[in-house]
């Protein structure tokens, strides 16, 4: 299982890549494996504002439906349209090209609540 450096993580198995005031969000290798074959992805329009913990989208595998929770408060800047057209890409490359949305942050102090890679790796080991 992949645990890339330089990202932040949540207990809901999302990863966050922060670049200045903008955060890219996707789901982790652990999450894609747990879901199985991903066949559907629903993302919000850009410009929509989400609070920390809001549902921003839905990912579906053949068997299951899972909500995507916004790990941060802010406004959607961009969505990954090509991933919506080919959601199996999430299974193939959950990081990098597997980013789902980017958010312009309202409040970057929320970032302190997130796990770094070592904390997330430990968390996954605990629940596995």
């Amino acid at each position: 299982m992949e645990f890339p450096d330089g990202l932040k993580f949540t207990k809901e198995h999302e990863w966050i890549r922060v670049d200045g005031n903008v955060a890219q969000i996707g789901i982790t290798d652990y999450a894609q494996e747990a879901l199985g074959d991903i066949v559907f992805l629903e993302l919000p329009e850009s410009g929509i504002h989400f609070n920390h913990g809001d549902t921003f989208g839905v990912v579906e595998s053949v068997k299951a439906v899972s909500d995507l929770y916004s790990p941060l408060t802010g406004t959607v800047a961009e969505i990954n349209e090509s991933l919506v057209d080919a959601p199996e890409g999430i299974n193939e490359h959950p990081y990098d090209d597997g980013w789902m949305i980017s958010i312009e942050l309202d409040n970057d102090s929320e970032l302190d609540e997130l796990m770094d890679v070592e904390a997330y790796r430990k968390y996954v080991e605990e629940i596995s």
Partner: peptide, 9 residues
Amino acid sequence: PVQYSGVID
């Protein structure tokens, strides 16, 4: 067993 290599495969 619910899956081995993956449902689609």
